[in-house]
Design a protein around this nucleic acid. Structure first.
Lengths: 343, 343
DNA sequence: ATTATTTATGCAATCGATTGCACAAACAAA
DNA sequence: TTTGTTTGTGCAATCGATTGCATAAATAAT
């Protein structure tokens, strides 16, 4: 049973007294092959335990059925969920996903893209690193006529399809919700970056305030890295400056978590003294005490969308289509950290 | 600048009036090539902006520099961290990782392995699905002489390298710690599966009790799916049965989280009334209130180890080496949920 | 100076499938 | 019957790099 040599289309051809071309066409459902030979080929293929060599196929056809996927960090819930989403769609279409991470390091990003091109992936789905300002490696992808889809962290410098969530709307939803809970002095934790996402969340926050006739107060605005420690520091600063505040909207769940810790340490009640809203809907948000209200970005859906955009571009082929930009609507997941008793 | 046609070794060869063989050898640092031509080739390659076509190389050489990696779920912290670990080692050696998930469905596992073989990966690193009992697809991998490394969820049915953590030791550490905190009535949440890992944790639990002259009590043992809801149910059952207990060691953080919720709802103090220890060290464990003591499995290290075992097997080549089994030692991360004041 | 060895390169087959073009056979139209 | 189409296969080149074997040139040994 253990055929040591893998069987090729030539073996099938020989067995049936036809040529490899015929076998190849039969296997690829080419309409020019008669029903009889097609069946015979399929039967022989099964008997000989034939498995196609995708490498050989790829070399000749130029199609590897591989997608290169680049994320900043594989083991961040948001990104791993997006990978999952992409993988689901890709596998169902018999494509495979090669994953690399940049770890937010520009050189890694460059070399990963180069490696993808060397293995001749059929295209790339990527999220740009935080510190990336040069996009030549991505332009090479486009120059080769390969599909490139950017997600979450994108740039206007590249004319290509992208999928993002409506960060503005996320910020607006979160802030409006806090206002609806009766909060008027709402602090905001943000990050200053090239990336637009934080600016958008901030803009949503500001506009929500203005729409409800609340004047934004610079004293309530804090900029940092949005890690847990940053959240702690911002909150301590708020308390020490003796700033009056009754809510915090953090552009990241981690910083919100830091705030929660400090507030509890200081004996403040959440949400009654200070209501709290984060962003990302990290898995841990439902396990904190109180559970943390947050903005869901639907990462798996985002992965599906990215994959679909990818295949749209792939099937469009050479006829350059107008790049599509899909904006997903976020959802505010209200939990106890911001839900006050009726007032 | 935009060379539309990619340059090949033939272009380089032509430019230098040598043959493609020479160019190939020069690029692969074959010692039979003179220093001069090597340099000339390298220079010309750079000038012509040459990028190797790995597909062509793979077809001829039989080496794709691709590793197929199969996990139950990409977006589980434990697995995504292992992927990260594998990826770090692989990329540093110029290998790429193709990721697929089985979602614990046997058919997916089978077809993923088959797909890996079709793209001619150089080997596979995998964690077996919960319900997998037939290992023929993995045997095919071994039959082809390809390296196969199993991690975390393995089986004795396959003669191949594997890396696991010492689940027994994890269970023993956790339980001993609770005993050291003065607990004597320690409940255990486990799961009944083909997989050994839960049995081992349970065995560690039992032996730790026995070693401290505590008689295991069947009334304190609960079996389920170890999800949050299971933890809630088990805890409610404990309370309703009016079982005396002063600690819970759950084989999963999620079930431990369920226990924490119920205990708090019932007004019990953690750890003073009931001390709590989980397993996995999920990211959320440091964010609960109180933070949850848990057993760290070092997933990134596990990924590194799996990758190293993979490359060991790969370099060993045909000369079948004895499969290695690496057992990583887990670490108990003590947090407030189990740390009592001095007593 | 002649033979033996080493060094550097070329030749041509090969990996396994795909595909444009040619062509024979079968069938339809006139 | 003759010409025109359609249908089903074969031929042979091709994708781009690798590699066993042969060989010319350079060097060492006798």
């Amino acid at each position: 049973m253990a055929n040591n040599k893998k069987t090729t289309i030539h073996d099938i051809a020989q067995k049936l007294n036809v040529t490899a071309s015929t076998v190849s066409r039969a296997l690829n459902e080419n309409p020019r092959i008669s029903e009889n030979t097609r069946k015979a080929v399929l039967k022989a293929a099964k008997e000989l335990n034939y498995e196609p060599n995708q490498i050989a196929s790829a070399l000749r056809s130029g199609r590897t059925q591989l997608i290169g996927m680049l994320v900043p960090n594989i083991n961040r819930a948001f990104f791993s969920s997006i990978i999952r989403g992409v993988e689901e769609v890709a596998n169902s279409l018999d494509y495979r996903v090669i994953v690399s991470q940049s770890s937010e390091i520009f050189e890694n990003e460059e070399s990963a893209v180069k490696a993808f091109l060397n293995v001749r992936v059929d295209g790339i789905i990527a999220s740009i690193g935080k510190n990336t300002e040069n996009f030549d490696h991505y332009k090479q992808v486009l120059d080769r006529g390969l599909p490139l889809v950017l997600f979450d962290r994108t740039t206007a410098d590249l004319q290509t399809s992208q999928v993002v969530i409506d960060d503005y709307q996320g910020g607006y939803l979160a802030t409006s919700h806090l206002i609806a809970q009766g909060c008027t002095r709402i602090a905001h934790f943000t990050m200053e970056r090239k990336i637009d996402i934080y600016k958008e969340r901030y803009r949503g926050y500001t506009n929500a305030l203005l729409d409800h006739n609340i004047k934004p107060d610079e004293n309530l605005l804090f900029s940092g890295n949005l890690q847990l420690e940053d959240g702690r520091e911002h909150t301590l600063a708020l308390l020490q400056k003796n700033q009056e505040f009754d809510a915090i909207f953090s552009a990241s769940d981690y910083a919100a978590m830091g705030a929660m810790q400090v507030l509890k340490e200081k004996g403040l009640k959440i949400p009654d003294d200070v209501a709290l809203v984060g962003f990302l809907n990290e898995p841990f948000t439902s396990f904190t005490d109180p559970p943390l209200t947050s903005v869901n970005q639907f990462p798996i859906e985002m992965g599906h969308t990215a994959a679909n955009l990818f295949f749209d571009a792939l099937h469009a082929g050479k006829k350059k289509v107008v790049p599509k930009k899909t904006v997903l609507q976020p959802e505010l997941i209200v939990r106890a950290s911001s839900l006050k008793e009726k007032h």
